[in-house]
Nucleic acid binder design. Structure first.
Lengths: 218, 218
DNA sequence: ATTCAGTTTGTGATTTTATCACTAATTTCA
DNA sequence: TGAAATTAGTGATAAAATCACAAACTGAAT
């Protein structure tokens, strides 16, 4: 990979010395869907910067129940890996690849060096914290204040946008896991949406009406 | 206030030049219980550093429902005010004083200057982000994975420790608000705890057994 | 001291949501 | 082809939230 290619993937970084350092010290990785990048309890020694694709970030509790938090998209990094790394504490979350993804993994020491030397990197880290805080608050709002039917509809919209499709290839169980509830609840709520003709259900697939997002925001 | 006094309130800061700057540029404030420091929608122009006492931080939704997030204790600052300030976005949370509190309010510009010049300040900001992320995850776990009875018991323990007392002077309504549920639910759960002799209920007061924490953790 | 308004707490009835236990349908692959 | 695994459907039960109202307590004004 050339500095030029990296620059186009990370338009926020214009400083050629910064880009060069990232390229030189970072490890380029191509990941396939299903690859688990991080799991609770494991130690993280790298800060991942997504170049292409996306990474799904989930919170997990002791019994393995999980809760979707947010996606890391191209150009973004994970605030939790930043905090875990610098504190050298084990991961609190699970990160899993959902679509073919390339990223560059930066050793913690390099991150700290870049923080000292490059304002662009410092701003990047700072805005990462900001954005992730924001998304954590959104996740918190959902579980604290929203009913499951609304959460499910928003989940569907999020997935549609993330994968740029109106066919979700997933199971009710998978959705239930990510929303932190049980499969039956999701099955019943999906049936209700089907009854309203907003979606159609198949095995391992949900077909979503093009105007789904307008329908739910009434 | 002298540099020496500030130093003893903030033992993490040893650099005398840093302490001097904080004292010079910051505004010392003494706040009484009930004082609302921050509200959703309002802009924050200052980074508060708690010197004595504590500040309760709550998330609020559009309809005014709220959810307890964490306490800011002596020596701590608010990650959300850091992110809000630097992004100059309105507050997403409510901050309210629960016990007599003194803090020093630092203009955003000073925070940015200190970030550039003092490693100790940079580390302070970084560990603030870490700690608050951690506490957001704990709050998230509670609403996502825990039942209300357990959440209530943990809430009682948190309050006991925070205020160093086993008498909570509050109403069921107030507790319900902070846990994001309704008053009846809290009243009934408290009655169950009273039946088990773990607490005693009075008007505006809950007397908690000294060994409450051990009782609940088994 | 008595009354009265406001606040706080208690409780039954109802509805909603989550969980449990089990069945049915579909797919996989030996 | 048929047994195992996966996925989805459903009634019963339990937990939690909501509604409606009653009772108990408090403080201030008469």
């Amino acid at each position: 990979m050339t500095v030029e290619e990296l620059k186009s993937a990370l338009p926020n970084f214009t400083d050629p010395k910064l880009l060069e350092l990232i390229l030189e010290k970072g490890q380029l990785m191509k990941l396939e869907p299903g690859k688990v990048l991080m799991e609770p309890g494991k130690f993280i020694k790298m800060v991942p910067i997504v170049l292409e694709g996306s990474i799904k970030v989930l919170r997990m509790d002791e019994d393995g129940k999980e809760l979707f938090l947010y996606y890391l998209d191209a150009g973004e990094t994970c605030a939790l890996s930043l905090t875990c790394c610098t504190a050298s504490k084990p991961s609190e979350i699970k990160a899993i690849v959902e679509e073919p993804t390339t990223l560059i993994a930066l050793p913690v020491a390099v991150h700290e060096q870049l923080s000292d030397e490059f304002k662009q990197w410092k701003d990047f880290v700072s805005s990462t914290y900001q954005n992730r805080f924001q998304e954590m608050l959104i996740a918190l709002d959902a579980v604290a204040f929203k009913r499951m039917d609304e959460r499910l509809m928003r989940y569907i919209v999020t997935k549609m946008k993330q994968h740029k499709t109106n066919e979700l290839h997933t199971t009710h169980q998978e959705i239930a896991n990510e929303l932190g509830t049980s499969r039956e609840v999701i099955s019943r709520l999906l049936k209700q949406l089907e009854k309203k003709k907003w979606i159609e259900l198949g095995r391992n697939v949900i077909y979503i009406r093009d105007d789904f997002e307008e329908l739910i925001s009434k």
